[in-house]
């Protein structure tokens, strides 16, 4: 993408975002409230200023020679890889509470490492175990904030009980 295209998209996105937020401030509930007691006055001011900024960004893209100011460069990125790690992180955060810390992390960590192109199992397995056990005890025992879901203590009980 050229700087001009990126700046045009960015400016458009800002305008769109402004519109989205502006829609949230509508309604006549506070129509006759004094300014200091009107919850929508300040956000509305911000939205209008932001839309103005978006317009300036678009104007810059259209009016400058390269479509960007001097010093602005377009980074070359590998988008599929960015999408991959974002999707993995999103899945991890989504199941973090319902599955619990140990299960969610036990699935995510090896999967993410392998997906990012690192295949040495002799490193991945011990690292995963250390992270699982270490972080669980650090939070549950030292910080007194028990991570969600079944914990190491349940696991131990299950193991000794199953014997």
């Amino acid at each position: 993408m050229t700087p001009r295209v990126i700046n045009l998209i960015a400016g458009g996105a800002i305008l769109g975002l402004s519109a989205l937020f502006y829609a949230q401030t509508l309604g006549d509930r506070f129509a006759d409230t004094p300014l200091s007691r009107n919850p929508m006055a300040f956000p509305r001011l911000l939205v209008l200023l932001m839309a103005l900024g978006g317009a300036v960004v678009i104007a810059q893209a259209l009016l400058t020679r390269r479509g960007a100011l001097p010093g602005e460069a377009v980074p070359a990125l590998n988008w599929p890889r960015a999408a991959l790690i974002t999707a993995l992180a999103a899945a991890y955060f989504w199941v973090f509470e319902p599955f619990g810390f140990l299960i969610a992390t036990g699935l995510f960590l090896p999967l993410a490492v392998v997906a990012l192109g690192y295949r040495r199992l002799l490193v991945i397995v011990p690292v995963t175990l250390v992270v699982l056990v270490g972080l669980w005890y650090l939070f549950a025992q030292v910080f007194q904030i028990r991570p969600p879901g079944p914990g190491m203590d349940d696991l131990l009980r299950l193991m000794t009980g199953g014997r």
Binding site: L158, T160, G161
Partner: peptide, 14 residues
């Protein structure tokens, strides 16, 4: 004891 432990563990999620 073992039974109680087992029961407690299994019952935990439910």
């Amino acid at each position: 004891l073992t039974r109680a432990a087992l029961a407690a563990t299994c019952a935990l999620p439910f």
